[in-house]
Design a protein around this nucleic acid. Structure first.
Lengths: 348, 348
DNA sequence: TAGCGCCTGGACAACGTTGTCAGAGCACGG
DNA sequence: CCGTGCTCTGACAACGTTGTCCAGGCGCTA
């Protein structure tokens, strides 16, 4: 029984025309079409015209999947980050995209949602697509799963946080130094009981910022009460509860150092409802920080620059730069706006 | 002269092992490896074990480029938006990504930077990659270039702004209604001289918001002085100058309606430096709007919902949903917070 | 033990493109 | 008139995977 439906040509991408179709219509050979499409020399103007006519008539567009298969380079890079919706990652993403564009590459994007399994799944999916390189803001604490990929030549640069248990290029902010400066700033304004609310301790940046806090306190000879430190998820509920408990407990804090932009925003909200002024410094700058009252003092890191630096490093590797994995650390900047300059209120 | 370098195998993706290599090492046929990799039935446990061992030993990972070429579906969708760094598009992007993920698809991302040529370039690059579908926030005013792609079966949904000169699915916010409500709100609080600063008039949302403004004014029987309206790029310099000229000219405005989040932010900055209070309503909600003083009244649209709705519509099309192009309009919501309730100051 | 069907495994072609190579056509000079 | 060298063109294989199809081996039954 002849089965018309079970034809030997199952899909053809929704019956898109191929170079073969164009060649047939133009009455030329397959390779000639390829030459025209790719602007290769050695085609008579007349032949070229015929081919171009056939291309527009058929609505042909080169199938890059086939091209990639043949050429071995995909001209695309992958970016895995925590959450595209986080205002910190928007500019970073965009910067990576701009660099990619300048190198003629497309960007494939994915959010890990801070879940190591999801990060790995995404990264491996990107490797299966044979992206030329990867920019990763890691969520996991073990990146050995990347070893075969690195060995196979997938260039990889980590941003914001370093890779764990493998050697790889990384571009980081000086979290430790920034935090130390932030806390020193509070101490300089007379604070002795300073709280720190940060992200989960497994996250490198959170750990570094905590270290900066501890160092600044130690350098000033100040004791740190364990109840002044709270690390964990940065959802408003948890952060709000942590802040309130530090403010309302015995020996309440007079200043708060917020470990990232999510925490800062919640802290601003909590403090806005208070009568006694509490000093605040936040890690990460954010839009309108200067227009709140008091304006929020922050440690600014340049997200776009992080992204740009990482992407440029990636393309240097792709262009053949060899050598040991490098770690670049970008400086942070304390922007004093007022909220960090509030002196400790007399709580006698 | 035998030339070792000019081997007939030029690249092999940095010498990654292929199924052939795995098959050779495991001592089985090519197709058997394929079966194991894809979890197809018909492989004895013992054979499967041998294959898996070879896979890990060689660090094999399936080449999805070849798979895509063969299968005709890429399991990826493209998202073209204006600027990934704009806080409005972050959540939208993320929502599209989540839906894509739920359907097992990857997201390829690009920013048009509000440049029609760049939009087209990006879209066509994505089509060449044979993305299964496209979500587009259009920058251009003529999308006929998409016709061959649509005819070839690339599902396409426009978001935030409709397609121009072609018929296509679209998910929009009710800009007209939202703006009308915003301006009516200002009028209800006693304002008669209300300014509008918006994006370039070629942008659909900007035009709709202007229409809402005009309609509300007309419905209240209020005249509109041309100097109260300013459309153009939303960079702080232009918006700031426009706002100042409306505030300082003859017959100064007593209230301002800001056409999008970029404009609102600049407006807040300008108004913060003023002594006479000026009422303000902004289109688009933004973080911390409630903590400014006065808190900023806004027309909120749900960016994540826009993205989600569009992506779901896209996948319904991919799953075979036929029919005429649909246009969905999502409601907006006026959130009164104070800045819109400032009565007009006595400027006698 | 012959016959039958089922299960496993592999050979082969195809997806649409590009690199290699050789052939066809032409002009020119000897 | 023919050889030489050039330009333009097309046939063919390969990229790595998956779908089709068939062969061989096994167990079961009559």
């Amino acid at each position: 029984m002849a089965d018309a439906a079970g034809s030997p040509v199952p899909h053809r991408y929704g019956n898109r025309p191929t170079m073969k179709d164009v060649a047939a219509r133009a009455g030329v050979g397959l390779k000639t079409v390829s030459r025209v499409v790719n602007g290769e020399p050695g085609v008579t103007p007349d032949t070229e015209r015929r081919v171009r006519e056939a291309i527009t008539a058929l609505g042909f567009r080169r199938n890059d999947s086939a091209r990639i298969l043949r050429k071995g380079r995909t001209a695309s890079i992958g970016l895995v980050l925590e959450d595209l919706a986080d205002p910190f990652y928007g500019p970073l993403s965009r910067a990576v995209e701009e660099v990619a564009r300048a190198h003629g590459a497309l960007l494939i994007n994915g959010s890990s949602a801070e879940d190591p399994a999801r990060e790995q799944e995404l990264v491996l999916a990107l490797c299966a697509r044979r992206v030329d390189g990867l920019v990763i803001i890691p969520a996991g604490e073990d990146h050995r799963y990347l070893e075969p990929e690195l060995a196979a030549g997938v260039a990889t640069v980590f941003v914001d946080r370093p890779a764990a248990r493998i050697e790889a290029d990384a571009v980081l902010s000086d979290c430790f130094g920034g935090s130390r400066a932030a806390v020193a700033h509070l101490i300089a304004h007379g604070h002795r009981r300073i709280g720190f609310i940060g992200d989960r301790p497994g996250i490198h940046t959170a750990a570094e910022r905590l270290r900066g806090y501890r160092t600044a306190m130690a350098e000033a000879g100040l004791p740190v009460d364990p109840s002044w430190i709270s690390l964990g998820p940065t959802d408003p509920d948890r952060v709000g509860a942590a802040a309130r408990s530090m403010l309302d407990g015995p020996g309440p804090i007079t200043a708060l150092f917020a470990g990232n932009n999510r925490v800062t925003v919640t802290a601003v909200r909590v403090l806005a409802g208070r009568t006694l002024p509490v000093a605040l410094v936040g890690f990460d700058d954010f839009e309108l920080a200067d227009l709140l009252s008091p304006a929020v003092t922050v440690v600014a890191q340049d997200a776009a620059r992080l992204g740009r630096t990482a992407a440029e490093m990636l393309f240097r590797r792709l262009d053949g730069a060899a050598g040991e994995p490098r770690r670049v650390e970008l400086p942070t900047r304390l922007i004093a706006r007022g909220s960090g300059e509030i002196p400790p209120a007399d709580r006698g």
